[in-house]
Simulated assay, not measured.
Amino acid sequence: MTTPLTLGTDQAHARLHELTVIDVRTPGEYASGHLPGALNIPLDRIRRALPEIRHAAVRGEVLLVCASGARSENAGRVLAEHGVPTATLAGGTHAWAAAGHDLRRPAVRDTRAGWSMERQVRFTAGTAVLLGLLLGLLVHPAFQVLSAGVAGGLVLSALTDTCGMALLLARLPHNRPRPADLAATLAALRRH
């Protein structure tokens, strides 16, 4: 098993021309801004793309990217379990943009309006808490368990640095790549 490396934003920027960059965020997040030349393979599709990523890693270093670094580290662990060496971008696209580096966005006609996964989680959690409180007041106090469950999930998410709600939301149609998108991305990765 290989140990994933971490590259800082300036290191990655200087070596961008020699790296195969894989953005593991949802297609909507990817469309909101990604590193130049990054290919989008959502985290839940990493295992499906394993042969192509392994092939790219043989030709050169693979850099995994997400919004903050947590999902790319998870992807790096999955790939390391399969003997594929990778590096992750410290701080993700947030740190990249904060360092003053460009993010690319597809042409308007190629994007779907979308929110970042973090924003989707905040909206969904807030809505569920409010719904639980409202139903608890108007219908039956037992509905407040919904609010308590969401609060407990948020605490667990913070403690484990994982997010079950994000994994569920990533499966919604607006966050999933179209089958042709993943196929085209994998074909581009084979050529890369």
Rank of each mutant, 00 (worst) to 15 (best):
R25T: 15
H55P: 10
A170L: 00
A180L: 08
T160D: 08
Q144I: 03
L135C: 06
A166K: 02
H192G: 11
T111K: 07
V84L: 01
A180I: 05
M117L: 15
F143T: 07
A70H: 14
E73F: 12
T185S: 12
L146V: 13
L5C: 02
V139F: 13
L168V: 13
A87N: 10
L167F: 07
Q11C: 02
T93C: 03
W96A: 03
T160R: 10
V65T: 05
H101E: 15
G8V: 01
L103K: 12
A57T: 01
A49C: 03
H174Y: 15
R176H: 00
H34M: 06
A125W: 12
A67F: 03
A183C: 05
R77W: 04
Q11R: 01
T2M: 10
V24I: 05
L7R: 15
A12I: 06
L7F: 15
H13M: 14
L186I: 10
L135F: 08
Q144P: 01
V155D: 02
A95F: 07
Q144S: 08
I46C: 03
L79C: 05
N175H: 09
G33C: 04
V139K: 06
E81C: 03
H55N: 14
T26A: 14
P4D: 13
T185I: 04
A97T: 09
A67T: 11
T2H: 11
T162Q: 05
C163T: 05
A57R: 01
T124D: 08
A97E: 15
G126R: 12
M165Y: 01
G126K: 11
V65I: 04
G60C: 08
V129N: 03
W96N: 04
V84A: 02
T2V: 14
G92N: 07
W96G: 09
A70W: 08
G114Y: 11
A97I: 05
L16C: 09
R119N: 15
I41T: 04
L159F: 01
A87M: 11
L172Y: 13
L146S: 01
L130N: 09
L169V: 05
E118F: 04
L103P: 08
